[in-house]
């Protein structure tokens, strides 16, 4: 029993040290992580911390500038902007994480599979990836939304599909270099199952680029939702969503009631900024070639 506990402590301490080390070496990355954590907390606890109902109209308080009652002001419908931004964090993170994880994992499976099996499988998969890669992103998203309509899950689908080939391409490149390593061949000849070899030996070796891509994808997905919103086909009212808030607000009120446009814009920019900083730092930390000596 004691031995196990000691082990756990040791593991904890090393995690703790690693985290501290990360913070010390990567001040920008830590800052980015802090932004991400704040956004995540806001999204998770929206019910408790949002001062108002994010969807209820208040015609007595339309387009009011920031005040004590409404810290960030109100929008055209008199809805509290702070509350909408807090709830919007949830929408943004759901879209960001789900798209990134689904797109990333699909890419991981296809990339590793393509590299491991090689030959015809690889050739065919690569042609499919080529097609998806070359296909204009926003056009595919527009088509997907036009086919299925504008629900949150459809918007996620529209954003996810284009992420898959980009992840698969990078993972395949990393996995290919591992595949040539002699011990993989050795494992094959000694009769280990494909699944075992892939999971035990290949996947761990592509985790680094995979994680870096994931953090980048979250930010890209949030931005993609904003672009779709600008074309009118993102998340729809009354769901609080940053891209949606920016679309109506930025177009109509940028000059007369700038707070309606500025705060959701800041929310998007800051969050994506946070993810990018964190992702960069993660890359620097994981990739030994870039690590300082």
């Amino acid at each position: 029993m004691t031995a196990v506990t000691d082990d756990t402590i040791a593991v904890r301490r090393s995690w703790h040290d690693a985290a501290l080390g990360f913070c010390r070496r990567q001040p920008l990355g830590t800052f980015g992580l802090a932004i991400v954590v704040i956004a995540a907390l806001a999204g998770l606890s929206a019910e408790w911390i949002a001062p108002y109902n994010p969807t209820s109209n208040d015609f007595e308080a339309m387009t009011q500038p920031p005040s004590l009652a409404h810290w960030l002001g109100t929008d055209q419908f008199g809805r509290d902007l702070l509350s909408r931004i807090i709830y919007g964090a949830r929408t943004a993170l759901i879209i960001g994480f789900v798209s990134a994880f689904v797109g990333g994992f699909a890419g991981l499976v296809l990339g590793v599979g393509s590299a491991y099996f090689g030959g015809t499988t690889d050739l065919i998969l690569q042609r499919v990836m080529d097609v998806l890669m070359a296909f204009p992103l926003i056009i595919m998203a527009l088509a997907v939304v036009a086919i299925f309509g504008t629900g949150v899950q459809n918007v996620i689908a529209a954003i996810t599909v284009p992420l898959i080939p980009r992840c698969a391409r990078v993972i395949r490149a990393s996995a290919l270099s591992i595949r040539e390593v002699p011990y993989i061949d050795a494992a094959r000849t000694s009769g280990f199952s494909h699944a075992r070899i892939i999971l035990r030996h290949m996947v761990p070796n592509v985790v680094a680029p995979f994680l870096i891509m994931l953090t980048a994808f979250v930010g890209q997905a949030i931005l993609a939702e904003a672009s779709l919103s600008y074309l009118g086909l993102g998340v729809q009212e009354p769901t609080p969503a940053w891209g949606l808030m920016l679309q109506g607000g930025a177009e109509e009120y940028a000059s007369t009631a700038p707070w309606i446009a500025v705060f959701p814009g800041l929310a998007i920019a800051l969050t994506v900024f946070g993810f990018s900083l964190f992702g960069d730092a993660l890359r620097d930390a994981i990739d030994p070639k870039l690590r300082e000596r």
Binding site: N57, F77, A146, T150, G151, Q236, T239
Partner: peptide, 21 residues
């Protein structure tokens, strides 16, 4: 639509919006 959806919520009706080209 945004207005109507909020008005409907006041009688306990929950409405989502689907926008199409």
């Amino acid at each position: 639509a945004t207005w109507a959806i909020d008005e409907w919520s006041k009688i306990g009706v929950k409405v989502t919006q689907r926008v199409l080209p």
